[in-house]
Design a protein around this nucleic acid. Structure first.
Lengths: 216, 216
DNA sequence: AGTAGAACCGAGCTTTTGCTCGGATTATGG
DNA sequence: CCATAATCCGAGCAAAAGCTCGGTTCTACT
């Protein structure tokens, strides 16, 4: 009888309260992230992390009950960083024509991911329990909410409303496209070209259009 | 000095020539696939695979020089199966209106992936060296070629031609959407609804449209 | 029937892994 | 300044990993 797939606790055992401890804690996460991006998930052993962080292995287990919890926390931090970047540059976008605003936003999303290319690559492609990390689920929900909110924004501009399914698909597809463009950049297209084209695609889907042949 | 990320050989050591050997070979691959889909990549140990296949561990190493090669071969087979399915159902699609043909094609792509949902999930999300497997690169290229070929087909129908970047993006986005819909099906939408909407999206991008406000 | 080579095998080696133990060291606050 | 709690530590254990060794068994072919 093969044992089922069960996950250990993903939450940290405790958070550091003293200053020295906070530095240790961060050193561990930092070291972990570095190993992830430089050598991949398989090379991320707890001993290795502790070594690189310059702390004893037991100190690592002071804070993290197991390896999975450590990884989950690293992922959470990277994601937090990423979203913060995104939120920051979103605020800066003030150009009025929606077409240009969209392109600018896509550009900053692209930039945000590029900045962490190495870690993101490993996280997305190698962490086995990625989608069991609460922070990931949360980010997903947030992004969908954002997408849905832009729908009403579009409606106020006068473009026809989009079905919920369409918003869902558009959001996932856009996310996937940006990720793909960063992780496996096609040799024959520059990032700028891709961003611009992506904006054009979204525009064609959401914008006003000629009456199509009635379907069905 | 941390050792760099280097991959061992991914090709099988040798192929079976006798009948008995062919059965062994297949039993190994079969067992590997089952473990993958039922317990995930981390549970796929060479000993475990040999056990489940009912062969000695040394027999496994007769054919595969190392664990990675075994995994690569499993992936190759799954992919082959999938593409075969897809090609088969592609041929069957004969309905003339491009809109319905598109929807039918997306449907069969969806079905093909669903049929192997469990393995595909693990392969896509957990195999660390997935994109170093030649067969994967090949499949990618093939699909892009297919997408590019439909462009000319579209042109013959009279719709405006698509830029190369647009075809690339459309292809990746479509693939990602289908994969996403299968791996993490949203509770609020049925597969049929998603397929239909996806077809509609592609249609809006590729179809004829009203003159938009000039960009830039 | 006999032999060469293909196929099979499992005990067990080497290495590495995640993690604990028992205790030393450092900070806090009364 | 002292006691209590927080923090740090590394040797090393138990388990499991990938893979080899030396050999037996089976198949094909003359």
């Amino acid at each position: 009888m093969p044992k089922k797939r069960a996950l250990p606790t993903l939450a940290p055992r405790k958070l550091p309260t003293q200053d020295r401890a906070r530095r240790t804690y961060h050193a561990i996460l930092e070291a972990g992230a570095r190993i992830l991006e430089r050598q991949g998930y398989e090379a991320l052993t707890t001993n290795h992390v502790a070594d690189l962080a310059g702390v004893g292995i037991a100190s690592l287990y002071e804070y993290f009950p197991n390896k999975h919890a450590l990884v989950a926390e690293i992922v959470r931090h990277v994601l937090e960083d990423l979203l913060a970047d995104l939120a920051r540059s979103t605020q800066l976008i003030t150009t009025s024509p929606p077409q240009e605003a969209l392109e600018a936003w896509l550009g900053s999303m692209y930039a945000a991911v590029v900045k962490r290319r190495a870690v993101v690559t490993v996280i997305v492609q190698e962490v086995p329990f990625l989608w069991d990390i609460p922070a990931v689920e949360n980010a997903r929900t947030m992004l969908f909410a954002l997408a849905r909110s832009t729908r009403e924004l579009g409606a106020s501009v006068g473009t026809p409303p989009l079905s919920d399914a369409m918003v869902y698909l558009l959001a996932t597809m856009t996310g996937a496209a940006v990720l793909e463009a960063v992780l496996r950049p096609p040799a024959e297209h520059t990032p700028e070209e891709l961003i611009e084209t992506l904006a054009e695609i979204i525009n064609r889907v959401t914008g006003e259009r000629a009456p199509t042949r009635r379907r069905r």
